[in-house]
Structure formats: C-alpha cells, structure tokens
Design a protein around this nucleic acid. Structure first.
Length: 378
RNA sequence: UGGGGCGUGGUCCAAUUGGUAGGACGCUGCACUGUUAAUGCAGACGGUGGAGGUUCGAAUCCUCCCGCCCCAG
C-alpha cells in the first residue's frame, strides 16, 4: 500500500478535507504533527500520543543521524520499531537546522557542513545523504534538503536559497527514484519544499519548478521565522494555488492555535510546530480561553483545571494550583502534564477544524476561535 | 570570663587594604512557530546590625553598643 492522498472536500474558500494513506496508516487532514525531533515527543509516551489520536509524528534527520545514528536505527528495524510508534512518521531533512544552527554550519552548492552541536565534529549533509538517512530511518514521508533562510532576508539572498533548494530538490528526486527503484517502492513519499523568502513571485516560481519535478506532496518552508502572521498568510496564499490539488500541502513549522485556521483556509493540509510541546515545558498552557502562564502568582490557589472546557486526562484530574506548584518546584511532572494537555489541545483543535470544514463553517469557527482565545483565562 | 571571627536586598555571597554596592538563587512578569531550548529575556527589592567619629568621600578606618559563630577556661 503506497502513499496516496485522498481529497474529500474543498470548501468555497479553498480549505480542504482529506485523508492521507501511508505505509503506517491513515492521516486525516488538515493534520497537526507533534514534533518528536530525537525520536521522542519531549515529555510524552507513545501510548499517550496514540490515545490523543496523533496519526503522524515528525522526526528529524539531522538529530537522529548524529545520535543514535541512522544505521543503528536501521539495524533495529527502522524508526517506527525503534521508537515503538506504529503510526506514520514524517522526517524533516535537516534543512531547518541550516537556519537554526546558523553559527554551526556552512552552506555550499554541494550541501551543508554542520559542526555537531553535540561534540563539535563536522558532518556534510547533502541532498542525497539526507535522503539516504531518511530511507534508513524508514520514514513514511521524507523531506528534501532545503535552505531555510532568516527573516528579513534580501531578495538576492532569497533567490540564491530558492535556486539552491530547487537544485537540491532535483538531486533528491533523482536519488529517490533510484533508491525506490532499487529496493522496490514500499510506498514512502517524498515532499519538495517551496522557498523564496517573502517574495511572492519567487515563491510562485519555486512552486512551479517543484511541481514539474512531481513530488508526492509539497511543503511551504521558510515561513514563520519571525515575519508577521499576515505575511506568512500572504506567502502561503500565493503558493497554494500553484500546487496540484490532488497532492497534500504542508506548511512547515506552524503555528499558534489562533493562526492555524488561517493556514487551513489557504488550502494547507499539514502542519507541525514545537509550540505546544516547548511552550508546555516552559509553563505556557494553551486553553480554550487563551494562554495560561501557569507560573503566574494568580494561579497559586486556583483549584480549577487548566482549561475548564477541556476533556483531557490532565484537566479531568489536576488543578492549576498543583500544576503551578510542580513548575515552581521544578518537578518534571509539571512539564509532562502540561505537554499532554497542550498536545491534546492541538489535536483536538484539528479535529474541530476538520469538522468545521465538513459543515462548511470554517470561517465562523475561525473568528470565534480568535475571539475566545483573546478573551483570556478567568 | 578571656582571645579571635563575622554581621551587606527574602536567602547565600562579592565589592582592587576609602571613591556614592554587584552576582547567584528566589520572587514578579514576558517571550517561545520544520526543537542546540525542563529554555531565554526583563523587572522589583538593599544604601551595608545600631550610634558616634576620622575624611572632600566610609560596606571598607577608629570608638562604643547589640547579635551570632569559633577557641580557651
């Protein structure tokens, strides 16, 4: 059973309801993918992720290559078996680390040379190497290596990065065809990545060029790196119409809960973000009434659950006062419970978004959500 | 009783043998967008145990008092 995307519905604004079939199960779209960079969604057991209904996780090529090593993971039966996650996995190529590890790397046409953030050793990541690693991991959806640039970036810089990304996409596509040809296709997918900074024409061209290469899906990268939300939306809106309707579209690295319906409305099917997990560890709880910064003094004697309207196991059992205490005391459980809640919040939100599309009321849902989240917790 | 040492924001400590007090933690708040992140940033709080003296100037020097610690009896 190969990779397949089933488009179930497109509403009048372009929001889509779909179903992605992968070698490791179905993913209902629009989907949110919890980030599990190092084969772990920090602070969460796989059991919990399954219970919360996560259908796909994101892992990272760069991190898993450095530690524990992709060959080791291959030997142990691939990433799914290694981390005991039976559902789908998308692996990021390491392209984002070109951006996030800016002072530890050197980019050339050949690829990216990283100095490991773990031990300082040097490693060359080429498009071919990134693909090879992802093959070894056995990921369901592989991403091409791309060059993600900072914001703001000059037109010249964006052009160079987009050109390099396209060249790398070509090389990746070629290597992928060769590899899957050799080993027989087991249905993994390869996604291309649109770049082009904040320049609409460049982004459109990047999308057109990528479509010619015929990927299984298309990602929009290099956004949500500091630019205003309106600009993120604008860039996304320019790009999605260029992409084939029958293939999934993945907006990389987003987003805030209140912004997610905006992306969906522009025809985005997949998203991932560290916000729910990282924020949770830092004491920022997403609730139906906005963010709760759990360390604030006001919660010291608050016996209410994190989110009064939430049905997750944390909200059913624990109080804000207890969570605050755990954070103040530096107890790991605080991060664990907060992460569980936040991931539940995101996955639940996606379910509601899907339902809203189905009922044709995403616009109403979106504005209501924004209002509710802006209201602030009691 | 004698000898010695020490008293600095809530806590623990700094401050070139005088130049108008700084850090850590804590506290309060904020930020996190394909995770180098159980992280980062910001802010508030003391005029240095008390009284007096020397000096242009004292946390630093002198005198007395108060409190604590150590040693010896």
């Amino acid at each position: 059973m190969g990779f397949r995307f089933e488009l179930l519905k497109t509403d009048r604004f372009g929001a889509r309801l779909g179903r992605m079939h992968t070698p490791h199960g179905v993913v209902d779209t629009p989907a949110f993918m919890p980030v599990g960079t190092a084969a772990s969604v920090k602070g969460m057991k796989q059991e919990a992720l399954e219970e919360l209904g996560a259908q796909i996780l994101l892992g990272n090529t760069y991190h898993l290559y450095l530690r524990p090593g992709h060959e080791l993971i291959r030997k142990l039966g691939g990433l799914h078996r290694f981390m005991a996650w039976p559902r789908a996995i998308l692996t990021d190529s390491g392209g984002y680390q070109v951006f996030s590890l800016a002072d530890l790397r050197k980019v050339s046409d050949e690829g990216v040379t990283f100095r490991s953030h773990l031990d300082g050793s040097e490693h060359l990541l080429t498009p071919e190497k990134a693909l090879e690693i992802q093959m070894a991991l056995g990921s369901d959806i592989m991403m091409v290596l791309d060059e993600c640039i900072e914001h703001p970036a000059s037109e010249e810089r964006a052009r160079k990065a987009a050109a390099r990304t396209l060249d790398w996409a070509r090389r990746s596509r070629e290597a992928f065809a060769k590899k899957t040809g050799e080993s027989g296709a087991w249905g993994q997918a390869l996604f291309g990545i649109v770049q082009g900074g904040t320049f609409a024409e460049m982004r459109k061209q990047s999308a057109r060029d990528l479509v010619e290469l015929d990927f299984d899906g298309y990602a929009v990268g290099g956004l949500a790196v500091g630019e205003p939300h309106a600009l993120t939306c604008e860039m996304t809106a320019e790009v999605t119409p260029m992409l084939p309707a029958g293939k999934p579209r993945y907006l990389m690295g987003v987003g805030k809960p209140e912004d997610i319906p905006d992306y969906v409305r522009q025809g985005i099917d997949m998203m991932d973000c560290v916000l729910p997990t990282r924020s949770a560890r830092h004491g920022c709880i997403f609730t139906s009434a906005g963010r709760v910064l759990i360390r604030q003094a006001r919660y010291a004697d608050d016996a209410r659950p994190l989110d009064i309207l939430c049905s997750c196991s944390v909200c059913k059992r624990y109080s804000r006062a207890y969570l605050r205490h755990l954070f103040m005391a530096g107890e790991i459980l605080g991060a664990v419970l907060a992460t569980h809640h936040n991931v539940h919040f995101y996955l639940d939100l996606m379910g509601r978004i899907r339902q809203a599309i189905e009922f044709g009321e995403l616009t109403e849902f979106s504005s209501e959500l924004r209002l509710r989240l802006a209201a602030g917790p009691g």
